[in-house]
């Protein structure tokens, strides 16, 4: 029992300790904090940052922007998927446009959107643009996979369109939508922060990242990167749990 627990603890603890050791060794051999700070220097920078109100406000604002982007991108992607699934004309017109959005590099979008949108709104716009084709693709695939026998049953049993949507389409789409949303969240997070770096708003993780780079504060740069990774992992886990709970309900 105890031996098993110890084994489990070791399995969890050893990989991070190993990689922290590799990082520390690499920093030791490089020997210049400007190029590669060690984990202790980064932890110190992180502690200093976490003690300021600006740190929490920046993180909060980035979260708000990314979730705004995720929300509008998800809504637009799902709506477009229904439109292109049920209307041949809409599909002929919109499907190529969505595919172009999917194929366009995020940096091109950031620079283009910079010309058209106020700076504070750019990260949310970009995050949404990255989310839209992913959700469109997963919902479209889900719609194509809805069991035609169930749809025929709905017609024969005189279900209204709304009831067919609620009882057949939406539950059938759940799996495709969930996996699409998890992928989209990762993209929204990365593209949103990238937009903040290129077009820095007043309070944002990306702005702080850029400021640290310009000031050659490499430990701070690493600290913000760690924050981005930690928030991404944490939020993805939260989102996954929420979606799993929704599926069970």
């Amino acid at each position: 029992m105890w031996a098993e627990r110890l084994k489990n603890c070791m399995r969890i603890a050893i990989p991070p300790v190993f990689w922290l050791g590799v990082w520390q060794l690499a920093a030791f051999f490089v020997g210049r904090e400007l190029l590669l700070p060690g984990p202790l220097a980064v932890a110190k920078a992180l502690c200093v940052l976490a003690g300021t109100g600006d740190f929490w406000l920046s993180a909060l604002m980035t979260l708000v922007r990314v979730f705004l982007g995720l929300a509008w991108g998800t809504a637009a992607g799902a709506a477009l998927a229904f439109l292109t699934h049920f209307s041949r004309w809409a599909s002929a017109l919109l499907s190529p446009a969505v595919k172009v959005v999917r194929a366009t590099p995020v940096v091109s979008f950031i620079l283009l959107v910079y010309l058209w949108v106020v700076r504070a709104a750019i990260p949310a716009v970009i995050a949404g643009l990255m989310v839209l084709p992913v959700i469109w693709g997963s919902v479209t695939a889900g719609l194509a996979a809805v069991d035609p026998q169930l749809l025929e049953m709905a017609g024969a049993y005189r279900f209204s369109r709304l009831r067919t949507l609620r009882l057949i389409y939406l539950p059938s789409l759940r799996g495709h939508f969930t996996s699409g949303l998890l992928t989209a969240f990762g993209l929204a997070w990365k593209s949103g922060v990238a937009a903040e770096v290129i077009c820095p708003p007043v309070r944002a993780i990306g702005s702080r990242l850029q400021a640290a780079r310009l000031a050659l504060e490499t430990p701070e740069l690493f600290a913000w990167t760690l924050v981005i990774i930690a928030l991404s992992l944490l939020l993805e886990r939260l989102l996954r749990r929420l979606l799993e709970r929704g599926e069970r309900a």
Partner: peptide, 22 residues
Amino acid sequence: AFLFQEDRLLPWRTVGQHIVDV
């Protein structure tokens, strides 16, 4: 009212809900 050869039940609806639905 047509009964299909296959049951065509909805995996996400309970027995009672299947009746309510019609």
